[in-house]
């Protein structure tokens, strides 16, 4: 069953939720927020799109296969911990520097990895459940 209202609004919601998820991800830098919550919001955006316009559309919008996204995210989170090994010999010791007055650290890379793992993980379940529903 396709609802006209849902289909019409889904793309707008999708865009808003995706933007919101990125905002939550970046806000986690200094305030409550971060990769996990951001990832959940982002995954909810894709799930809305999948409900309204079908799983195929959502899969195309995601570009990468959810599992690939999950693997890439885990790899990115892993890489963020490596500099710590080089500098003071402990994994996940985060490095800090500043760029144009904004404090930047490898933590944001870690959070980005978490974000991708959460989006990929939630969607790999979600898409499969939706697809089997349709079948």
């Amino acid at each position: 069953m396709r609802s006209l209202i849902l289909t019409a609004m889904a793309r707008i919601f999708f865009a808003i939720m995706l933007a919101g998820s990125v905002w939550v991800l970046l806000r986690g830098h200094n305030e409550p927020g971060g990769g996990f919550i951001g990832g959940l919001v982002g995954a909810a955006g894709f799930a809305t799109l999948a409900l309204a316009a079908g799983v195929e559309t959502a899969r195309r919008a995601l570009v990468l296969h959810p599992v690939v996204l999950m693997g890439a995210g885990l790899a990115i989170a892993f890489v963020s911990g490596v500099p710590g090994i080089v500098t003071d010999a402990s994994f996940l010791t985060h490095q800090w520097g500043s760029l144009a007055g904004v404090k930047l650290g490898t933590t944001i890379v870690f959070d980005l990895g978490v974000y991708m793992v959460v989006v990929g993980g939630v969607l790999s379940f979600m898409f499969r459940l939706y697809e089997e529903d349709a079948a």
């Binding site: 996990f36 939630v122 379940f125 499969r128 459940l129 089997e132």
Partner: peptide
């Protein structure tokens, strides 16, 4: 909470698969 969420999601997917 995160772990509980993941395991519940997995268990639901498994139950659905079992039903099918």
């Amino acid at each position: 909470i995160v772990i509980g969420f993941a395991l519940t999601a997995f268990a639901i997917a498994l139950a659905l698969k079992a039903y099918r």
